[in-house]
Nucleic acid binder design. Structure first.
Lengths: 227, 227
DNA sequence: TTAGTATTTATATGTTTGTTTGAAACGGCA
DNA sequence: TGCCGTTTCAAACAAACATATAAATACTAA
């Protein structure tokens, strides 16, 4: 096993939980995630990754098949749980009946993002930043995979928001959702447009709870503003 | 002249306006702008640029000094006029007295962006996308240059928004401006987070006027929502 | 025209890139 | 112990990279 590119890694967990370092493949993923976020896909060389992960250069191609496949693996490892988390919250909200409130709907998306951001064992805010990079770089094949597997995500939210905002036309709603998710993603990713213009790095408070506190009212106001 | 990296290009304009191709340096900038947007800085090689611009490989280093300097040149060529445009609108609005309305303030930023987006001779929406890429990749030295020259941009808008929204604390206002500029930038850059999840490319209407029509109410609502 | 500078060209340099290879080392099971 | 599938390793690969150099050409001013 290994050099086949389809292997996603199914190793036995070490029985006696060693406090030291994880799996080779996992170590590669962890370092790669950080470096891809920091420098982008192209600017991150396999040598940087393998050196920091303290594994042999050939290990990447052995375990993942290629640099592209490594990226996809790193990406999907985080995306799947995040999407599931959102859809689970959405399920719960819809099943408890009653009128769908925009704020609650927004929170079904924000809460899993917030939870992820605060969980170092899942890379913290790294993945949201990776996602925002991936949005802007265009890894065609990855987009293919994502849209094949997760188009339901957008559909579910579209339907839900339509119910919560029945007075809006589908087009108007599409625009507002576009804007809303755009703010939310970039907020969690920490992409501050204004930061590029000012010297001080102090501005970025970075506390995820603070983000949410200010983010929710802003987004809800935008979504619910009179047509 | 040429190989010194400080040369920003000061060629005579061709007297008889040839309909054919512009300056070598300009041709390089035009192609580079498009390719940097499409593939990012690292993934764009000087060979791609020079081939498409139909100039010799060494021309980049001759005219701009280095790949980094070329990027900075490409970037600044568009940033400077855009910022000036915004500040000019802001000046005009402030000088005409009366209470500062949030919507008018928002429009002082949106109008120059819209004008740029609709002007092919200035690269259309390319630069906004380049800016959004630059935000996410971090070209340190470029950030330095920008913040040195254009920190006034943020200061001016901070003061203006504070006047228009006196009931907000400075911190609350900073968050809202962060969110507002984030939506606006990403709207013009066409970074649609949801697009990555759905197959159809049809969604992206792309008409800048349409963007504005829906964008302004959303942003204004977010900014003015009760504290 | 001629002299001198500005630009373009072809070619070469030395790195760095992703990927491959074949052998060595490892680990569980007979 | 000896075997065998799995994993690691050092080394090498061609290809592509940014940049440098010197010769060739284009242009301008006298």
């Amino acid at each position: 096993m290994g050099n086949a590119s389809q292997s996603v890694k199914t190793k036995k967990a070490p029985e006696i939980m060693e406090a030291s370092k994880p799996d080779t493949a996992t170590r590669i993923q962890d370092v790669a995630e950080r470096l891809f976020v920091e420098h982008g896909f192209e600017a991150t060389s396999l040598r940087m990754i393998t050196q920091q992960a303290e594994v042999n250069l050939a290990a990447v191609n052995y375990h993942f098949g290629s640099k592209d496949a490594l990226f996809e693996s790193v990406f999907m490892r985080r995306l799947a749980p995040l999407i599931s988390g959102c859809l689970a919250e959405l399920d719960e909200l819809e099943q408890q009946g009653g009128k769908l409130e925009v704020e609650d709907l927004v929170k079904t998306f924000i809460r899993p993002c917030l939870a992820l951001s605060k969980d170092p064992s899942r890379g913290g805010a790294l993945f949201v930043r990776l996602l925002s990079r991936t949005l802007v770089e265009n890894h065609r094949q990855l987009r293919e995979v994502i849209s094949q597997q997760y188009s339901v995500f957008v559909q579910r939210y579209s339907v839900a928001f339509q119910k919560a905002l029945p007075e809006l036309g589908t087009e108007e709603l599409a625009w507002r959702m576009h804007f809303a998710f755009s703010v939310m993603f970039n907020a969690f990713a920490g992409n501050d447009v204004l930061k590029i213009f000012v010297r001080s790095q102090v501005v970025s408070a970075r506390d995820p709870d603070m983000i949410v506190k200010h983010l929710v009212p802003f987004v809800v106001a935008g979504l619910t503003s009179p047509a």
